[in-house]
Computed example of a mutant assay.
Amino acid sequence: MVKDNKLIKPFVKWAGGKRQLLPELRKRIPKQMSTYYEPFVGAGAVLFDLQPEKAIINDANHELINAYKVIRDKVEQLIADLKTHQNEKDYYYETRALDRTTEYEELSDVKRASRILYLNKTCFNGLFRVNQKGQFNVPFGKYKNPNIVNEEVLRAVSGYLNNNEVKILSTDFEEAIKYMRKEAFVYFDPPYHPLSDTSSFTSYTRDGFDEADQKRLKKLCDNLTKRGCRFLLSNSSADLILELYKDYTIEYIDATRAINSKADQRGEIKEVLVRNYEVNDLNG
């Protein structure tokens, strides 16, 4: 299923992105499926690597999903607006502060997508983080030449989204796979459960993703298994995750985390891949 168009790739930097793990994920993702589901799509590294002809993608981050839709429907308008941004500190903070004003609600979908892509490319360490009020709160990155307008990638992603049957949602992860059938396949990449009390980074949305959500996701995986549906899940190697999925196949993967708000928490860590199907099923 992996396709050759290398320009179809993530258009945002994303903490927890899966680009580095793609070789390991490819080995485990079935070659045949009716529909590809990804309820925590994030930057879309796996989606854009597989480039399935039929997919349902979802993310709880409404601003991110708005960007996907604008890239699909209004890519040239988005590119034109991105070219108006300035890599300048005062301008950055002025743009960042828009979601703290009443005028933010009046911004067009193109303006909102342009703003979030600009902030993502110029903020500190490529973080996407919001506070309890849902406001973007990452400081200026001070990069000399950030690639704010990657026209080739934006047009390639737009082409993929338009030339295939890709449904884009922004709802709860359970709702996103509500109508999944046995022939389909789902890849779960939720916000990882923290390895320690000080390492939590779940603020992609104002509501975060807590232990109760992790348990709810596991229950969903149990229901999928009972229905004969295949799933692959990524998460941290936290004790909670190992305990929750002890009845499934768990594999440890080395991963390097380059994006973190704390420098001493970047570096190589152990992650896990959990699945409910056998390796010899991968071609079927």
Rank of each mutant, 00 (worst) to 15 (best):
residue 6 K to V: 06
residue 8 I to R: 00
residue 12 V to F: 11
residue 15 A to I: 03
residue 17 G to Y: 08
residue 20 Q to V: 06
residue 28 R to S: 07
residue 28 R to W: 02
residue 30 P to C: 04
residue 32 Q to E: 13
residue 33 M to P: 02
residue 41 V to H: 08
residue 46 V to F: 08
residue 48 F to Q: 08
residue 53 E to G: 14
residue 54 K to C: 04
residue 55 A to S: 07
residue 59 D to V: 04
residue 63 E to D: 14
residue 68 Y to S: 05
residue 70 V to Y: 06
residue 73 D to F: 01
residue 75 V to K: 11
residue 78 L to W: 07
residue 81 D to C: 00
residue 86 Q to H: 15
residue 91 Y to P: 00
residue 94 E to H: 13
residue 94 E to M: 12
residue 97 A to L: 03
residue 99 D to Y: 05
residue 100 R to V: 09
residue 103 E to K: 13
residue 104 Y to S: 10
residue 109 D to A: 14
residue 110 V to N: 02
residue 111 K to L: 13
residue 119 L to P: 08
residue 121 K to S: 06
residue 122 T to S: 09
residue 125 N to M: 00
residue 127 L to Q: 07
residue 136 F to D: 04
residue 139 P to A: 00
residue 151 E to G: 05
residue 153 V to Y: 03
residue 165 E to L: 13
residue 166 V to L: 07
residue 170 S to R: 01
residue 170 S to I: 10
residue 171 T to A: 04
residue 171 T to M: 11
residue 184 A to T: 06
residue 195 L to T: 00
residue 198 T to C: 01
residue 204 Y to W: 07
residue 207 D to S: 15
residue 216 R to F: 02
residue 218 K to H: 15
residue 228 G to F: 03
residue 232 L to R: 07
residue 240 L to R: 07
residue 248 Y to Q: 12
residue 248 Y to W: 04
residue 253 I to L: 13
residue 255 A to S: 13
residue 257 R to A: 09
residue 260 N to L: 04
residue 276 N to M: 03
residue 277 Y to K: 00
